[in-house]
Design a protein around this nucleic acid. Structure first.
Lengths: 227, 227
DNA sequence: TTCGTTGATTGATCGAAATCAAGTAACGAT
DNA sequence: ATCGTTACTTGATTTCGATCAATCAACGAA
């Protein structure tokens, strides 16, 4: 299973630089640190399941957490992928509702958990926490909208190209960068079957993209931007 | 263009029962009412565009607002549709960022606008507002996740069937209900071309669904649930 | 090293929905 | 009513990606 513990020095530091805590005043940070519980998860461990009463807020310290929904006959659709520093959006349920999706460790991961009742108590006393949560959710809603429109407007190679451009963070010049996770995870995030991602990569070779393992070399970012 | 005015009795009442204000304490309600500006919009009027600096929060009083994203060559993908009482999620940007999508009146509509700077000021003093915003966003994120997984897991007739079941709110027995908006809007919301929606409806005839205009009769909800 | 597992690629086929193209129905204005 | 616009439907075609199936590569354990 997974070990539960109070945050140590390393975890405190990671938490402090996370999206949620970074925006808070010192007192709110202290209050949140007080209730934080660190857990270490093996790959494939489930954090919570869709439909369960939501009682914990989750924040990723290391590794990646895959959030997905199931259909009646067991097929899965990834809706978001969270990495170090990310607040897991599907676990922000202040009104006593239920998780909207299932969260699973895609690889061995370290996470911070916060009791939602207590988070709500703090948020009711300290507006900076509530505002920070609203901001985080607003950003995640924007990402979800982007995924939706991406799915509906772009083909597989286009989605991959956009992903690469968004993540290599370089304009004009050729670059290399390393995929932060397995290709099958990336495929899920982009709403593709692994085979489709593979084909997209090989089609992008003619646009200057070369892949070996997790290493991606982008020869001509401009060409990618144009298709 | 659109007329701006202070909320009258009717508008105040609608606002009070809206998702956002309903959860607030009396003082926060008063503070929000204070800064509310009512606008009446003709069909097709744009409320805000993707990428513009976000300066207003929007809440629908009547009519429907379509929120969509554009791709480089002008095609549109609907990401959400908001009706009476809904807070427009893409306009909740407390951190001074930009709108993540474009909002357009799908039909003549009445909306309430709130200056975001002032909303932020209130939220920083009154946690109930910030918490209410977080709750609203969390619910919208859940809806966005549902749309994403729906797109990825279900065919057009399945999506339509699920929409009908979710909106007729009846278990077991046959029912009729009226679509709240045009079929082309529904098609957009479901991520379909209008033609595909039309075909889905005609395929669902063999499952007991009959459509005339906006009136939908569902003969056998159980049959729909099974596919 | 060799084996066994897991992840990635490639090929062939199939199906779902977008797109293109007419044609029909509904409705408002005159 | 008649016109004209807009919404919807139906048909034919095509494209994209899922799926099925078979290799192939990478890596860890023995």
């Amino acid at each position: 299973m997974n070990r539960l513990m109070k945050p140590g020095a390393r975890e405190r530091e990671t938490l402090l630089s996370s999206g949620l805590l970074a925006a808070l005043g010192v007192e709110s940070v202290a209050a949140m640190m007080e209730i934080a519980v660190i857990g270490s998860l093996p790959a494939r461990q489930i954090l919570f399941r869709e439909g369960e009463p939501a009682d914990l807020l989750h924040c990723v310290l290391s590794g990646y957490i895959r959030v997905y929904k199931l259909d009646p006959d067991g097929r899965e659709a990834d809706v978001e992928l969270y990495g170090p520093g990310d607040l897991i959006g599907a676990s922000v349920v202040l009104d006593g509702g239920r998780y909207a999706a299932t969260a699973q460790a895609a690889e061995p991961a370290l996470i911070a958990r916060f009791d939602l009742k207590r988070v709500r108590d703090i948020a009711n006393r300290r507006p900076d926490l509530a505002v920070a949560l609203a901001n985080a959710l607003s950003a995640q809603l924007a990402k979800a909208f982007a995924s939706l429109s991406n799915d509906r407007l772009h083909t597989a190679p286009q989605r991959v190209a956009r992903y690469l451009l968004a993540h290599c963070s370089v304009e004009g010049k050729a670059t290399s960068f390393r995929l932060p996770y397995q290709k099958s995870l990336l495929a899920g995030k982009l709403g593709l079957a692994p085979e489709a991602l593979s084909r997209a990569f090989s089609m992008l070779r003619s646009y200057g993209v070369n892949v070996r393992g997790r290493l991606v070399h982008i020869g001509d970012p401009e060409a990618l931007r144009r298709l």
